[in-house]
Design a protein around this nucleic acid. Sequence first.
DNA 1: TCTGGGATTGCGAACGGTTTTCAGTATGAT
DNA 2: ATCATACTGAAAACCGTTCGCAATCCCAGA
Lengths: 148, 148
Amino acid sequence: MTSRLEALCMEKGLKMTGQRRVISQVLSEADDHPDVEEVHRRAVQIDPRISIATVYRTMRLLEDAQVIERVDLGDGRARYEEATADHHHHLIDTRTGRIIEFASPELEAMKERIAHELGYKIVGHRLEIYGVPLDDAADGIRDEEERP
Amino acid sequence: MTSRLEALCMEKGLKMTGQRRVISQVLSEADDHPDVEEVHRRAVQIDPRISIATVYRTMRLLEDAQVIERVDLGDGRARYEEATADHHHHLIDTRTGRIIEFASPELEAMKERIAHELGYKIVGHRLEIYGVPLDDAADGIRDEEERP
DNA sequence: TCTGGGATTGCGAACGGTTTTCAGTATGAT
DNA sequence: ATCATACTGAAAACCGTTCGCAATCCCAGA
Ligand SMILES: [Mn+2]
Ligand SMILES: [Mn+2]
Ligand SMILES: [Zn+2]
Ligand SMILES: [Zn+2]
């Protein structure tokens, strides 16, 4: 069965190899923000003859083709998600690692306004929020030190 | 002459070695966002017997002591600036690499509100804007592809 | 369907930024 | 000044990522 991303790749005229099909499937089924090793782990379960190097190469290919997007969550590695029409940002729960997605047109507008006032046109931006659940914070649960 | 940061370090009770004094001086005099190699380059000009390893160690020490702050501008390396009372963000000119600092209480408030609505208390956040000068953009100067 | 040749793969080595190990040295409390 | 302790330089290890190369695969064209 051909996955959503596989169809997209074919539209873009990318040569479809077995490895790319599997990686496309993995990414199509993912509803989180896996890093390269995680994608590889999932891919190998479908077809064991996929090397990590190929996953790296394919992620870059798909990113360049705008099929997926790279997400930088502040841990040292690149994470990815399917490219979507609607732009959003991430709130990372520093206690659990849970990632909450959010969008804010007001915030985007404000950012746009700020750049314009400085004499700039925005070509890209990055925003992540790190937080802890309000109730946990109220309970006074000790905050283990984490570099966000 | 004892630099601003050196004084701060002594207040915090850090052992003051010759190397730390020099690095503190370099950072006190910097008005940009140097990476570790740049700090080392400047430090060596004051005292050639400072190793890059010590600069790495000292930057981390000063960061942990909240004397300096790490800035992630999206190029692969850590950049630093003196910790200041007033929080700010960075707009990076993707054509020249120039960095413009800005602050926006409204934006901070909005971010705070968003997190609160999601049930979270903010413990950290990151925001960078990448842009090109408005007039350059109007002139239609070709945008060389850069990964921001 | 068969084929040729350029694209892709797996492997391991290389890379760039950063951390660590370890033996020698400097610091600062006494 | 002494001495335990913390710090340093140099080199090796580390970690995520990219690269070089020979072997293999895909698929447009016959
Ligand atoms: Mn997302
Ligand atoms: Mn700054
Ligand atoms: Zn945005
Ligand atoms: Zn802020």
